[in-house]
């Protein structure tokens, strides 16, 4: 997936000052075939950038092109298709449905493309130490556990780009290692790439390109 930013800037941040290296201040190409790490201090708009790239918002100036198409012009039907088949995301606030069990939350995603059998999904959960949580309501899990469930969920679909928004903020070191291994393994299997935004850490994942906001 070829992404191009040209002086793109969230409208609510247009009066703020950024360094000349910031992605908001220059033109940049996030080439496909590379894994990208975007380092950004708090409040510099990293979640906004992922929101623009996932069709959740379009209040920006400048231009953001996805495969040479301005993302503002992508229709809601096209976004649905992109979210099903081309881009997956782990959001900072997880977005699980708290009243549903872990099983239901994961099945809602897997049912879209039916990529994995139940055993495969349970294996992934086990690798992140959540094998006992299959029938537990997502709302009753700790934040760290919810983060891990949302990581597994993001892997249950085909994608070209996996976007990670501070995915390990509430996870212990050992589980970060296990989760990042699982992410990289699944992403390689799919021949896809990763775009992670982080406050400053790369969590020992290898990135070809690094950017700043």
């Amino acid at each position: 997936m070829h992404i191009e930013l040209n002086q793109a800037l969230p409208l609510p941040m247009r009066d703020e000052s950024f360094s000349p290296e910031s992605l908001w201040k220059r033109s940049a190409i996030l080439e496909s075939g590379n894994d990208h790490l975007i380092l950004a201090p708090s409040g510099t708009g990293k979640t906004s950038l992922l929101s623009f790239l996932f069709g959740m918002r379009n209040d920006y100036q400048g231009s953001i092109l996805m495969d040479n198409k301005e993302v503002k012009t992508i229709s809601i039907a096209e976004w649905a298709l992109i979210r099903r088949e081309r881009i997956s995301i782990v959001m900072q606030d997880m977005r699980l449905i708290p009243t549903l069990t872990v099983e239901d939350n994961l099945n809602l995603k897997n049912n879209l493309k039916k990529m994995y059998r139940e055993n495969d999904i349970r294996d992934m959960l086990s690798r992140l130490g959540l094998q006992e949580k299959w029938k537990q309501k997502a709302g009753t899990l700790s934040i760290g556990q919810q983060q891990r469930v949302s990581i597994v969920r993001s892997l249950l679909q085909p994608y070209e780009l996996l976007m990670l928004d501070e995915p390990f903020s509430h996870i212990d070191e050992e589980n970060i290692r296990l989760a990042s291994e699982l992410i990289v393994e699944q992403t390689r299997k799919k021949g896809a790439n990763i775009l992670m935004v982080s406050l400053g850490l790369d969590y020992n994942m290898k990135f070809n390109q690094q950017h700043r906001l």
Partner: peptide, 15 residues
């Protein structure tokens, strides 16, 4: 509302 947004973000078609 929240649940529907989650479904839409997962890639469910609004139609």
């Amino acid at each position: 509302n929240y649940e529907l947004r989650v479904l839409l973000l997962m890639g469910y078609d609004h139609t």
